[in-house]
Amino acid sequence: MTVRILQNPWRLLLAINAVVIVGVFVHKVQLPPYVPYIHLLVDYHFGFIKRALIGAVVALFTAKVPVWLVFALGGATWLATSALYARLFQNTFGFTARTLPLFVFTAGSPFFLKNFMHTLGHFDIYGCALAIILLLMPAGSLLFVATAALFSIILVLIHHIHLLMYVPTIVTIVVIRHYLAHGCNRTNIAFGAIALVAVSALFLAAQFLGTMPIPEADFVGYLKTRMADPSRTDLLQFAYIWYQPLAKEISDTWGRLPHNILGVPVFALLIWLHTPLWRFFASLIGALASDLHKRLVIAALIGISLAYLVMFAMVFDYSRWISNWAVCMFLILHAVKMLPAARETELIPAEDRKTNISGLVITLIPRVGIVRPF
């Protein structure tokens, strides 16, 4: 029995991942939710401002926001995203003994669901969830393109940095699933172009016109009226982000760069541990029936990576950015699998010793973090 588990440990690794996720959740609920909580308080009471959509939706249902709502809302979103990804994996690859290594390297990656649990309440996961929905829904009509545009608008209203974080991945999914799979014509190209312009214009409005129009002291005073416990003033210490200009964010990021850049070797090691997955992804691209599809997929991966490079230069939450970059790669992998292939791609081997070791290591890593590794 022991020898069999060591040779094919993937079911055991899934069970270990589940235990690790529970541990991360128990640890997370004991930490003060500084940034996630204040996002539930901010709404459109003073007009159009950035980062206010989630708070505005919460305001429709409750006038007073308890702290526990961060974990309830974040936990429900995490569960929904996990279920959506399980459904996506089932649709794309199916759940068999042969596909379990691939599932462990994606769903069990410290970049993915485990790190979303660590960042519970942050806005990153919404981009992932909406991108998965686009991978699951029919893509043959302009309704698909319109839905993608709507999702992108929602994400920019949640936080404008989604224009770099998940909108490029959504655009790639639309190109692969609609334009490459169903063809291009004047109507759908024009519709897509208008959608891109609209989302970009909204981003510029949020970035440069979405600053809070009242003094910070008055803003904080209003937030206290939304709190279930106004004495928790420690949870309002990040109110300044609704006043901070882009130049200040970039300045802070570059000021922290010498220290934060020390985490890059750790990120590189984490990426290297996923080598069996990257090899499979490369083989999947190489197996595509069309050379044009291959070139466009590679260009999209470069474009998504460049968007994250811009984020690295602007905002210093490096562990979150590298984790979401990896998640975007996982999602594009599923989109690529939906394209016509000239041959079948061999899955990640289930009984290879080096692959098993890599799978065990990434399973035991509980998360990547928010700013610095771990």
Rank of each mutant, 00 (worst) to 15 (best):
G74D: 02
R177E: 05
L333K: 05
I214R: 04
L209A: 15
A80V: 15
Y308V: 09
P340R: 14
F267R: 09
F46L: 09
K248L: 08
A289H: 11
C328M: 10
H27W: 12
I348R: 02
T147E: 05
Y318A: 03
I154D: 00
F123L: 07
M338A: 14
P168N: 09
I49Q: 06
Y318H: 08
W254L: 15
F123R: 01
L204T: 09
L69F: 12
A83S: 03
L204K: 10
H178S: 00
A299S: 06
N260G: 10
P9R: 00
V20Y: 12
H259Y: 10
R232V: 00
G47L: 11
Y166A: 11
P32Q: 01
A205Q: 12
I154E: 02
I214P: 01
R343S: 12
S323P: 03
L12T: 14
K337F: 02
R177K: 15
G47M: 11
R367N: 04
H259G: 08
E351H: 12
L306F: 13
M338L: 13
P36M: 08
M311V: 08
L84H: 03
H118A: 13
L364F: 03
A201R: 06
A56W: 12
R279A: 03
G221S: 14
K248A: 12
K224P: 06
A18Y: 03
F191Q: 01
L113C: 01
L12D: 05
L14R: 01
A131F: 03
T92L: 05
I365F: 00
W10V: 11
A149M: 10
L157E: 00
R320T: 14
L100A: 12
H259K: 07
I158W: 06
I21C: 09
F46V: 06
A228F: 02
I189A: 10
R367T: 15
E249A: 14
L301H: 06
L12I: 13
A52Y: 14
Y37E: 00
F312P: 06
L41F: 06
S152H: 08
R98H: 11
L113T: 00
R177V: 08
L157Q: 05
H118L: 14
F208D: 05
E346C: 10
G75Q: 09
L40V: 01
R98K: 15
L202N: 08
W10D: 07
A313H: 11
L306P: 05
H293K: 04
L100Y: 08
R226S: 03
V266M: 10
